[in-house]
Design a protein around this nucleic acid. Structure first.
Lengths: 257, 257
DNA sequence: CGTTGAGTTGACTGATCTCAAATACGGTGG
DNA sequence: CCACCGTATTTGAGATCAGTCAACTCAACG
């Protein structure tokens, strides 16, 4: 159902194969690549793969063949504890590269499941590594992407280790808002592709707690909730709840000791 | 006091500069490198840097200059929330590479502080990247290391998101035990370099909770605690508590779907 | 129009935190 | 080598945030 009213970003992506024509090019492996480099990159990329909601992109334990760049839709990565508990380690949106965590032992350490209809570009790892050996910019970009993934997870650790339930949800909503915005979608109004259960499994909370928080946030006038549709009404309040941290990514400089 | 009775691994490390002679070589950037490669690698590595307990290896926000390979001692990485809360994102032992999380935006996203006297090799990132462009094995190794870091943090997410307090501590103790063992130290008897507070900040628990758990584990006969000295008495019980997960790293194979 | 899964809401429970106090330890100066 | 001080650790008691169990609503679907 969602497929029919996707944003332009998503519609575009269906027909393009070459990276240099892809509207997401700057997001997958951006910067430092020349037109020629992009051409080489495009050559190693296999055809688009389509997933329905609930389909696995890969399963835990499977041998790593390729990394995937998400062209449209969203994906959750999750780990299963032996006792059946689920921990979602990330939600992945268009323009993001998924599967890098499998490089270390050449097996996927988690499941990746489509939250809605998804299109991905398949990038054989061997070819990518070969190419990275020839194109310094690509090599650096790969390292950057993985480093960023590490930083993102560190933030997640802070969230799970120290933040209250409401701060967690506020942080999560703000993060999604920013990411939607950088995809050219509305930062104030969006549709969540994940269930309350998924959010709970991501935030380390019970689904009932997530549901209650949505209700409370709405009662407090911070957001408007209609099922999975979310309107952000009071950004500042959300940021305050999330514990708006100054961030080192911003252009402003600083050094220490 | 600890410095005087360090293991051979640690004593060795003081006098070596060249990687191929370093007893930790297999741990820092192992595998797939020829003798010549090792020589090239050694050339770019700067002199050892020594830290006292409590010293910063780097601070949050500082510009990334180098990665560091730990030769001896241990280091904690931590993030600070605006409200003063601390989340320790990792404990780093000899043979580990630290600082890779700073590659993405060329600034360190966290503080790194010595938990005891520490020796590190400084590896200028630019030189390392250049070298990785020439040595495919090194490039792959870098990607592997970063990927492993991501996987490690995913496990940490599971811990913080879903595990009970006792499972968290058990998991942490087992992890340290394994890592000590792979350094050639005893897996059953070791000294923690971090305080109860540090453990709490790592595990997402109050220090009092950590302390109580140590007492309880001891009462249950699983471990013997003398301050920071820990003896593991009942490995199986600890593993059971930690929710001993079958792991995909082991040689045994499997595929799915 | 019944069945099913997602989401909401309420009542109660409990694991973990917070506050507080006692004790042990590590390091320092005499 | 010993006394002393500040910090780390242990332990207790009460408070609380979030989890669990359960009932109910709603929308989608056949």
């Amino acid at each position: 159902m969602a497929a029919s009213k996707r944003s332009p970003v998503v519609n575009l992506s269906r027909m393009k194969v070459a990276c240099k024509d892809c509207s997401l090019r700057e997001l997958c492996l951006p910067l430092g690549l020349t037109e020629d480099d992009m051409g080489d990159l495009a050559k190693i990329i296999k055809r688009t793969r389509n997933l329905k909601k609930g389909d696995h992109l890969y399963r835990i334990g499977e041998k790593l063949q390729s990394l995937y760049a998400i062209k449209s839709g969203s994906i959750k990565s999750l780990e299963l504890a032996q006792d059946g508990y689920v921990q979602i380690t990330g939600f992945h949106l268009p323009g993001e590269l998924i599967g890098v965590d499998a490089i270390s032992d050449e097996r996927h350490p988690c499941d990746a499941i489509a939250l809605e209809p998804v299109q991905v570009c398949e990038i054989p790892l061997n070819s990518l590594e070969d190419l990275a050996g020839k194109i310094p910019g690509l090599q650096r970009q790969l390292l950057r992407i993985m480093s960023k993934e590490i930083v993102k997870e560190q933030g997640q650790l802070m969230m799970l280790g120290k933040m209250t339930a409401d701060a967690r949800l506020a942080t999560c909503l703000l993060s999604l808002s920013e990411r939607f915005e950088s995809l050219g979608l509305s930062a104030k109004h969006f549709r969540l592709s994940m269930s309350r259960q998924d959010l709970g499994d991501y935030l380390g909370l019970a689904l009932e707690t997530v549901s209650r928080l949505f209700s409370r946030f709405q009662d407090d006038g911070m957001i408007k909730v209609e099922g999975r549709q979310v309107h952000i009404l009071d950004l500042a309040a959300l940021q305050a709840l999330a514990g708006d941290v100054q961030d080192w990514n911003k252009p402003s400089s600083r050094s220490a000791s």
